[in-house]
């Protein structure tokens, strides 16, 4: 199994179900660079889950091809293919009759890893997803909370070090607080392991937060736009996309940048609410409006004031 992440290419992929006029996925072509998170997003019926499932052949393509690295998925033995792809689903699908450790060890065991290597890997992964192995190894799925279960699902998918990960609305069944926490966890983990990830969601905010690139699919399975979040928010391809990202896309763009990424103005006795440098522009705007100030003071990591940013500077950022 490849350790390095692999590039994924969709080449005019179409899926037609017998007895239905319109295809579920229609001539989908896009390329996901290795190590990036690509979000497949869109309203229901957009074919996003179907498209993702064609990568590990849980759904078979009618036309077209999908390549991982340079190899077509059709050329590989299907079971072998799937063992090299991490698969995470919304309800987790954790095996109720196995402990957490046994769940995580599933694919390594299928691949015939020896016991020592497997156990070491399980411990390593449980630590990665922030579930101390010493506490969680021997527990069963029924004893875990929703968030804990999905972390185990993630660890399980990463166990055999696949080159590609498929995630189907993994956080959809969680409460908002846990969801946010896991989203940030996943980003942190991704910075460490750098897999190529296809992530399906219907939530545009989640897509913007998580994605290096976003593919918006319209009902009927046609690609509406495929680009970075910034580019889509700045320039939606058509009315459908504009509608889908929401009329507040200007504000959404602001949430992509942090205060400490902008050039700061000198303090010069400026007075206003003080915010950490890691605050998003959107939150900074919100603070300005609610506190009635046209300027905020930006703090550095130690809490000392570094500079200031004005409301005009924020507006300029949006116009660019």
């Amino acid at each position: 199994m490849a350790d390095a992440a692999a590039r994924i290419v969709f080449d005019h992929v179409t899926k037609r179900y017998p007895g239905r006029a319109a295809p579920a996925v229609d001539d989908l072509t896009l390329e996901i660079p290795a190590g990036e998170i690509c979000i497949l997003v869109g309203p229901s019926g957009g074919g996003k889950t179907t498209a993702m499932k064609m990568v590990n052949r849980l759904v078979d393509m009618t036309e077209g091809d999908i390549r991982i690295g340079d190899e077509s998925v059709r050329d590989r033995d299907v079971t072998e293919l799937r063992r090299g792809i991490g698969y995470v689903i919304q309800q987790t699908g954790l095996f109720p009759h196995m402990t957490v450790a046994e769940n995580v060890a599933t694919v390594p065991r299928l691949l015939g890893w020896d016991k020592q290597r497997t156990e070491a890997r399980v411990d390593e992964l449980l630590d990665l997803v922030d579930l101390p192995a010493v506490d969680y190894r021997a527990r069963y799925a029924a004893q875990l909370s929703g968030g804990e279960r999905q972390r185990v699902g993630l660890a399980r998918a990463l166990a055999a070090d696949p080159s590609v990960m498929l995630m189907d609305e993994p956080f959809g069944a969680l409460d908002p607080i846990t969801r946010t926490r896991l989203q940030h966890e996943l980003l942190r983990i991704h910075r460490e392991v750098r897999k190529t990830v296809i992530f399906v969601t219907h939530d545009i905010d989640e897509a913007i937060l998580m994605g290096d690139r976003i593919a918006i699919l319209r009902p009927g399975g046609r690609l509406a736009q495929y680009d970075t979040p910034e580019a889509i928010l700045a320039g939606p391809a058509d009315d459908f996309v504009a509608d889908f990202v929401g009329a507040d896309r200007g504000l959404k763009r602001l949430s992509l940048t942090r205060l400490d990424e902008l050039p700061l103005q000198p303090l010069d006795g400026a007075r206003g609410p003080a915010l950490a440098g890691s605050t998003t522009l959107r939150d900074a705007l919100s603070t300005m409006l609610s506190e009635g100030s046209r300027v905020v003071v930006v703090l550095d990591g130690d809490g000392a004031p570094r500079g200031s940013i004005t409301l005009d500077a924020l507006a300029e950022r949006l116009e660019s």
Binding site: N56, Y87, F95
Partner: peptide
Amino acid sequence: PADVLEAARGMG
């Protein structure tokens, strides 16, 4: 459960 079966198949 259906999701358990799907996960098992999807894992190879």
